[in-house]
């Protein structure tokens, strides 16, 4: 009779504050994306300039005629009817609209309310980020999440493992090198950049912090960076959700809900 000799150890991986920060952050980011698309819809184009400059338009979404939606990217136009430019009006019909109703909060076009949601949840997301940072720093497990120079040689072997070109992942701590790279980039580079480019859009902030808006190339340019930041965040979220769904969904979900995670045999605790 065969039996497993693998000792499945349960470890308490996430502190309560970390878990709360994760879920508040996740909800806030979802709201920020959909209310952000609502705000984008009011001026559905992005210019690489300080003031609006059609000659430096990078992206625009429009409806040249009823029933037709178009996306123009660097001067190349694509038909996107039903999704971008022409789609759901959020109240059961279709209309000329950059992003469709099922992607925006509220579903119908309302810039004033989109702004209310966006600015309220910008505080929620920022406070969740801060709570996570403080909680991780206190617990001392920031170190196991941040990418270090010694992780760099392990990035390619880890990618090879994901591509099934390698049987085992390289030995690593709580997080594998690619996870560390992703989390370090998202939490310490992307998230602050999204906040700063958002602030740079506000005339009241620009009046007290000119260098911030200048740094990003001006107000419209900051709007472009803010949008690109959102796209990168969406990319991260899709990979993140895919990973959670495929790398032991119930174990992963349990750990982010109750804190307890079951270690697999190639994993260990600590950095």
């Amino acid at each position: 009779m065969r039996y497993s000799t693998i000792v499945q150890r349960l470890v308490y991986r996430y502190a309560l504050l970390t878990r709360l920060a994760h879920w508040f952050g996740a909800i806030a980011v979802a709201v920020l994306i959909s209310s952000g698309l609502q705000i984008f819809n009011a001026a559905p184009y992005l210019d690489a300039a300080d003031r609006s400059t059609p000659a430096r338009r990078v992206l625009s979404i429009g409806s040249p005629a009823d029933g037709v939606g178009q996306l123009t990217l660097f001067g190349h136009t694509f038909t996107t009817t039903g999704f971008l430019g022409w789609g759901s009006d959020g109240v059961g019909g279709e209309t000329a609209r950059a992003f469709p109703g099922w992607l925006t909060i509220p579903a119908y076009q309302d810039l004033a309310d989109g702004r209310r949601w966006h600015f309220f949840f910008a505080w929620v997301a920022s406070l969740a980020w801060l709570a996570w940072l403080v909680s991780s720093a206190i617990k001392g497990n920031l170190a196991e999440m941040v990418l270090r120079p010694s992780d760099l040689p392990k990035l390619l072997p880890m990618q090879a493992y994901y591509l099934r070109l390698r049987r085992e992942p390289p030995p690593h701590g709580t997080y594998n090198p690619l996870q560390k790279a992703a989390y370090t980039f998202v939490l310490f580079v992307l998230a602050p950049l999204i906040v700063l480019t958002g602030l740079a859009l506000s005339p009241g902030i620009d009046a007290i912090a000119h260098p911030l808006t200048v740094l990003f190339g001006g107000r419209q340019f900051a709007r472009l960076w803010h949008f690109l930041g959102m796209l990168l965040f969406v990319g991260f979220a899709l990979v993140h959700i895919f990973q959670v769904a495929t790398q032991g969904f119930f174990n992963q979900m349990r750990s982010m809900i109750s804190g307890w995670y079951r270690l697999r045999d190639h994993e260990s605790v600590g950095p």
Binding site: S34, G101, I105, P106, A107, Y108, D110, D113, F120
Partner: peptide
């Protein structure tokens, strides 16, 4: 996300909270 957000948006209390 969108339908829940829309329902909350139409709730006067929540709408007021957002406005704070």
């Amino acid at each position: 996300c969108a339908p829940i957000g829309t329902a909350l948006n139409d709730n006067p209390g929540f709408h007021h909270l957002l406005g704070l």
